[in-house]
Amino acid sequence: MRALRPLGTVGGLLLFWQLAVWLTGVPPYILPGPLAVGQALVGRASLLAGHAGITLTEILLGFALGSLAGALAALLLVASRHARRWLMPVLVMSQALPVFALAPLLVLWLGFGLGSKIAMAVLIIFFPVTLTFFDGLRRTETGWLELARVMGAGPSAMLWQIRLPASLPALGSGLRVAAAVAPIGAVVGEWVGSSGGLGFLMLHANARMQVDLMFAALAILAVMAVGLWWTVDRVMAALVRWQPDTYQNPR
């Protein structure tokens, strides 16, 4: 029943959309109804699947590499005072640049293929993961750390046995943000310069007034983004089952 609730909301919106299209008589090259989009989804399935595969690869690789790089950067910041002093300002400055502005450069350097899109996604994902994970690693309950010190724990035991597990909820927040923005990175990269992918397909469909195909690509993109977010959300929730969720009844 709970799983059906969002479907009900979406179904209601689709119904409203279809009715609005029928009642206003808006031409399909401006706004096609959901039925027309559905027809495009089915009719152009093989075309869409090919491009969707490219975009999905970009999203997944970008998410994996970006999260990994972000997590490693956070560990480096925790491990070394020098890294904190020299690296942190650079990290913050790198985010002051609009990353989208870098997209043409990335295409110039890395070409029209997967590389530039993955680099784009990594650039967007990297920072939220680093920041949240680093915050989680720093804000460890001091009582735990002092207890560990009295017990004779070394710095690495404190990091791996106490700081790291204690920071998993914060890392989870970072990864959820990363999962939500990874598709943006991939699609922006495709818009700037590419030879395939849903973003590429959308640009071409738009230019040819095939708005139904554009919506179909958008729907697939939405499903992939939600799917990635949902998977990350479930995995992180399973990893930090010990953390009480104040919006749910305990157990």
Binding site: G143, L147, Q243
Partner: peptide, 12 residues
């Protein structure tokens, strides 16, 4: 050995 007012049990 050290025992504090908070139990300091690791929840995980």
């Amino acid at each position: 050995a050290f025992m504090a007012q908070q139990d300091l049990l690791l929840p995980w």
